[in-house]
Amino acid sequence: MSRTRTALALGMAAAGALSLASVTASAAPLPVAGSTTVTPAGHAFKATLSGKATLKAGSVTVTCTVSVATGAVPAAPGNQNAAGPVSSPISPPTYSSCTSSMPGVTPTVTTSGAWTVSMQDGAPITATMTVPAGGLVVKTTGLASCTVTAAPTAAANVGGTWANGAPPSLTFTNASVPVKVTGGFGCPTSATASTFNAVYLVTDTTDPAQQITVGP
């Protein structure tokens, strides 16, 4: 083969390879969420706080030692999603035995609305708790009268992780929650976000011998 033909052949091969690479790159699929299955389907569950839950807004931290929420795994086939998370409605979590980092201040936490928790299988398994608009309100009395409203204008997603086990656990570590703070002296009115920390242990209340499990 002549040098001209050899050069032409190499040039065509290189062009073909470049074209193939371009097509392959442009056709590369976008990443999608993997499949998720939560079992046992249809079973009710109870999430109970382990240790303490803290909500920090500005320089003020509210700590609660009692918190409970209930819910249920969707019935089949709703407990499976081939390309994303499985969502379950839960009761608004209750919070009690709460204290404030501000001396002479007593907090009260109330919750309301339609709360949900979504599980996405992976490494780690991720959990997203959705707080409805205005669904959590902290009011303080005593030396400072403040009102902290979580998700003040729209529903907010609070990210956490799930760990299968006996019992399984749902953990929130420095999860960000939008807030609005109103009140007078001593209230962190400039705060627009808070951090939430809590660990919940989850039990199957339909059949206590079984465990709520998240998998592919």
Rank of each mutant, 00 (worst) to 15 (best):
S112H: 02
S88K: 00
T161W: 06
A155F: 05
T149C: 04
A127V: 14
P92Q: 11
T106N: 10
W162V: 13
T153W: 08
I90M: 01
S101M: 03
V158E: 05
S97G: 05
G113P: 15
L143V: 13
T149M: 14
T149P: 03
T153R: 03
P107T: 11
Y95G: 00
A150C: 08
I90Q: 04
T153K: 11
A156M: 03
P89K: 12
M119N: 01
L136M: 14
S96C: 03
A127Y: 12
G122Y: 06
S100L: 03
M102G: 00
S112D: 05
P124G: 13
T110N: 15
V137S: 07
G122R: 04
T149F: 07
T94E: 02
S96D: 08
P89R: 13
T128D: 14
T147E: 08
V148L: 14
A123L: 15
V131T: 11
G160A: 15
A156R: 03
T94R: 01
A133F: 10
G104W: 07
T141F: 13
P89W: 11
T128W: 10
P92I: 10
C146E: 07
G165H: 15
T153Y: 06
G134T: 14
S96Y: 06
T111V: 08
T126G: 05
A155Y: 14
V137W: 09
P103D: 09
I125W: 06
M102A: 01
V137N: 07
V109E: 05
A133D: 11
S91C: 09
M102D: 02
Y95K: 01
V105N: 07
I125E: 03
T126D: 02
T141L: 11
T147M: 06
K139N: 14
A144Y: 04
G135S: 12
G104K: 10
G165C: 15
T128A: 05
M102Y: 00
T94I: 01
N164W: 13
P107L: 08
